[in-house]
Design a protein around this nucleic acid. Structure first.
Lengths: 259, 259
DNA sequence: TCTTGAAGGATTGTAGAACAAGAGGTACGA
DNA sequence: TCGTACCTCTTGTTCTACAATCCTTCAAGA
């Protein structure tokens, strides 16, 4: 009997399956909201009303609630019983934790650079070049995008779908705090050179050195972000900022009372 | 004006908040299903019918669907459009990926043993002692539980809530494959000694050595599990096993046709 | 003046019914 | 054997309804 579909074709089609199956309204709604949150349309702390969003998006409350569950699981939103869904407000402890995670995961991935296939290494370098081109043109928003791609490319060196997803989520969550950086040039500028150094080490397969560079890089970036980031500690309760195990958010802003 | 509640008390109560807010039916349902899946009551590949489970648990379809979203996000179940929710079937590639992730995360956490406070290090040793006691009594199921606690304690050395959660999820997902191990004594027995070695290195703050030991440990355990684990590749499509980027599952068994 | 307590309205939590759409099975015919 | 038409079951989604809870406001008392 003849094999109907070659193995290569089967593998390609298998990769398309997720795309095929992703046509659930709830997931599409979650994707929209995720994008909007990342864009800053919904500020951290703001409440996402079921009725308002449901009407605006033309979906029922049930469907919207399913989408909310997904976003809450990604920590982009938090769910307060009988109060609703709020866009997460990262504390300084959250930012620190996210950088701790990134040092571990990105560092671990960079260390494996020597084992990674060449295309994955070249992809890292490509993101650096994108960033440099954008920086030369003064397009600092694109620089930021390229920087995100750089870090995801670093994570991809681990050749693990789960690590990829973790990177995606961690960077998305951290994006909640990046809106505090009003001057992207000042924030991203100094790292362009360091990105290139790391990319070259990766390209050369010198994983351990790349990891060390990346470790220092992330530590510096964390300090810089924390220096300007004002977490919910500003809201006024002491003993809150650094010592709470897992403060998803502090106290969301109340929406303006309806007339 | 007198401060009504001291800062310390406020901080303590703030920690209780998560407990207070965790009483959503959907989350409780998700917790029940999670437990049952881990126990093996729902075998990998089996379908979770909305109607049947909703009736059995006494919750509406809407609530159940919210719970399903959570489980799918944890990868314990997979969602197929218009077909329903199925308990995930791990491929060999999934198992390999989970061990890759564990090597990176647990290894990274173990490396930080020197920075971890003493109670966290002692907690690692405590799990080893639990396992040894259980093994002496021949209670191999408890040995397995203690082993899970051991690895979570290793992860806790990172002092990161997000790493803790990642460990929890990764071990839960891997639990889907552990049912293939029909003989827990054979599987866990050889690792009791290695656990102790690692725990002692952790206790001594010798993180790098602990990481190396753990790396070899996990690599061996992976090989042992993969040797006996038959993933869905047995279902018969070639080119599926190792080269697909993210095969959450292959092809779930169909439920027996109703009469 | 400050604190406490009690309506009142608004929103969420959950259930249930309803219908369209898709998947899977079955019988029939070529 | 294959293809097609039909049929049934389940899911996807919406709508309605109501209880529970929270927030606000306002009034009463210390």
């Amino acid at each position: 009997m003849v094999v109907a579909v070659s193995d290569e074709i089967a593998a390609v089609l298998a990769g398309d399956r997720s795309e095929l199956a992703s046509s659930s309204t709830a997931e599409r709604v979650a994707g929209i909201l995720r994008t909007r949150i990342m864009e800053g349309l919904f500020a951290p702390g703001s409440r996402l009303s079921e009725e308002v969003l449901g009407r605006a998006l033309g979906v029922s409350r049930n469907t919207l609630r399913e989408a909310f569950r997904l976003l809450c699981h990604e920590r982009l939103t938090v769910h307060e019983m009988n109060r609703g869904i709020f866009v997460s407000v990262l504390t300084k402890a959250d930012v620190a934790d996210l950088y701790r995670l990134r040092r571990m995961v990105e560092g671990g991935a960079a260390r494996l650079a020597g084992d990674a296939p060449v295309p994955l290494r070249k992809a890292v370098m490509a993101t650096v070049e994108d960033a440099e081109v954008a920086a030369a043109g003064g397009a600092w928003l694109e620089v930021r995008t390229a920087d995100l791609h750089f870090h995801r490319a670093i994570g991809a060196l681990a050749q693990s779908p789960r690590v990829d997803e973790m990177m995606r989520r961690a960077l998305a969550e951290l994006g909640l705090a990046f809106h505090a950086m009003t001057d992207p040039e000042q924030f991203h500028g100094p790292y362009l050179g360091r990105n290139r150094v790391i990319a070259e080490l990766v390209n050369a397969g010198r994983g351990e050195e790349a990891e060390r560079q990346l470790y220092g890089y992330l530590t510096d970036a964390e300090a810089q972000l924390l220096a300007v980031y004002e977490g919910p500690a500003a809201a006024g309760i002491a003993g809150w900022s650094m010592d709470r195990p897992e403060p998803a958010h502090f106290e969301p802003e109340r929406p303006a009372a309806r007339p």
